[in-house]
Simulated assay, not measured.
Amino acid sequence: MKYFWEDFTVIDFMGMFIPGALFVLVTENAPFPFWELCVGFFGADNDLALAVYFVILSYLLGTFFIECSKGLERCLCQDLVGARYAQSAAYDAGSQAKKWFCSLESPPRFSDIKVAVHGRGAYRKRMLFSGFYELCRTLLVAIPASIVVRLIGGYDICILTLPTVHAPCINVILYLGILYIILRRMRRFLKYTVEYTYGDYHTLCCSGSPTENSSHAASSSETEGP
């Protein structure tokens, strides 16, 4: 139960609440009057109700964004997860965990590996990297969505107000630069998450008893590739 609540707070706060809250704050009145709807229902003096409303709305929007962003992993991180792990040049070729994993005749799926090492090894570190990865991945959807919504509402989307005719182009470049940096950090955090997960799985299998090792080998032979 302790590890469940750690998963819940890290992933939910970083991957769902923060992107959802960003969208609510940035798109206020453009074109969805979140604040007016809440004030009209609860009243302007009910701070607790407004806070609860903000948290719930941010979480719901963040849940929508994180679902929409799942395809980004398949499109932008194919070389970091799944069957690509053993062949990927992104990981250290001299890693003992990678060498051991490549030697398996029928490697287990990454999802099965995460279940096997749940709560073990560098669990807190893995969850932190996973939380930052989810945050970056969801922001890649939440930021463009915020820009589109503000454009629909006819609101300014400029980061910098510059007295030049090239100001729109400069702001577009800034947005693209921000998204590119977030993408790079997303890949980096996912890489760390995968490395620590496979490392803990290697430690678990190689340091366990013969009975445990044989059971892991049996389960690996019954599963498909990662």
Rank of each mutant, 00 (worst) to 15 (best):
L140G: 06
P108D: 05
G119N: 02
S106K: 12
L174T: 06
S95A: 13
A145R: 09
A86L: 10
E67I: 15
G154Q: 05
S130E: 06
A93S: 13
S103A: 15
I113K: 03
Y123G: 03
V148R: 11
K99C: 06
I147N: 05
G154R: 10
P108C: 08
C158D: 10
T161I: 02
F132N: 13
A145M: 12
G177D: 00
G131W: 00
Y133K: 01
Q96I: 11
R84I: 05
L176N: 02
D112I: 05
G153F: 09
Y85K: 07
A83R: 15
L135R: 00
D92T: 11
A167E: 02
L151R: 14
E73I: 09
T138A: 09
F132V: 06
S88F: 05
S111E: 14
L162R: 01
K99H: 06
V148E: 12
L162V: 01
W100Q: 08
G131H: 01
V165L: 03
A145S: 12
G121V: 09
P108V: 08
F129K: 03
E105R: 13
S95L: 08
V165T: 05
P144Q: 08
L140A: 03
S69N: 07
D156Y: 06
S95W: 12
L174R: 01
L151W: 14
C77D: 07
A83H: 14
L139T: 01
V149G: 06
K114D: 04
A122C: 10
F129L: 10
S95R: 11
D92W: 09
D92C: 09
F110K: 15
G71V: 09
A89C: 13
G177L: 11
V115T: 10
I173R: 00
I152Y: 15
R84F: 14
L128A: 04
R120Q: 11
K70G: 04
A97G: 03
C102Q: 15
G154H: 07
T164N: 03
D79V: 04
D112T: 14
V141K: 04
F101M: 06
D156R: 07
P107K: 11
E105V: 01
L151D: 10
A86M: 10
I173T: 00
L72P: 04
S130F: 13
A93V: 14
G154L: 03
L72I: 14
L139P: 05
C68G: 07
C169S: 05
A122Q: 08
S103G: 04
K114R: 15
I159M: 09
V115G: 07
E67F: 13
C77G: 12
A122L: 10
K114M: 13
Y175S: 08
A145L: 15
G153A: 03
K99F: 10
C77V: 04
G119I: 06
P163Q: 00
C75E: 15
K114I: 04
C102D: 10
R124S: 09
G121K: 08
A167P: 00
N171G: 03
C158V: 02
L80D: 07
Y155I: 04
Y123E: 02
S69Y: 04
A97P: 07
E67Y: 07
L162Y: 00
V81C: 11
E67M: 08
L176G: 02
L140K: 05
V141W: 03
S88W: 03
T138R: 03
A86Y: 10
